[in-house]
Simulated assay, not measured.
Amino acid sequence: MSDTEEAPKTAAAPAAPHEVDYTIANPDTLTKYNSAAAIAQRVLAEVTKAAVPGASILSLCQKGDELLEAETAKIYKGKKIPKGIAFPTTVSPNDILTPYTPIASDTAEAALTVKEGDLLKIQLGAHIDGLPGIVSDTVVVGTPTPEQADLLVATHYATEALLRLMLPAEVHSNIAEEKPYKVPTSYVITQTIQKIADVYGCKVVESTTSFAIDRNEIEGKKKIVLAPGENMAKSEGTPEVGEVWGVEIWLSKGSGKVKELPGKRATLFKKTDNKTSLKRESARKTYNEIREKFGAFPFGLRQLSDERTAKMGVVECTRSNILRQYEVLGDKDGALVSRVYVTVAITKSGITKIAAPPALDLEKVQSEHKIEDQELLDLLSLPLKADKKKKKKAAAKKDE
Rank of each mutant, 00 (worst) to 15 (best):
A45P: 05
E260D: 13
E170G: 08
L58I: 04
S136Q: 10
I39Y: 06
E316L: 03
K279S: 09
T107F: 10
K223M: 12
D373A: 05
G237Y: 05
P168V: 11
T192K: 11
S282Y: 08
K389S: 01
Y157M: 04
A12I: 10
G246K: 07
K370L: 15
L131C: 07
A38V: 00
T185D: 06
I354F: 13
T208V: 03
K234V: 14
L379Q: 04
L30R: 15
D198S: 11
I81N: 02
L336T: 09
A154L: 06
L301W: 00
E243H: 09
M1W: 14
D378R: 13
A126W: 00
E240L: 14
G201A: 03
T29M: 09
G220W: 01
S282D: 09
V135Y: 08
L377V: 11
V344F: 06
V139G: 06
T272E: 09
L152A: 01
S2H: 14
S92W: 02
S338N: 01
R339L: 13
A335E: 08
L58A: 04
G313D: 01
E230C: 03
Q366M: 14
K391Q: 13
T145N: 03
A310D: 03
E69Q: 13
D137S: 14
I57W: 05
I249H: 05
T72G: 00
T209P: 06
K203P: 04
A104L: 14
S105M: 15
L382M: 15
H127E: 10
V52L: 12
E236Q: 14
I175P: 01
K275Q: 08
K393Y: 08
A359D: 15
E5Y: 11
E206S: 10
R215S: 05
K271V: 08
I134H: 07
K74F: 06
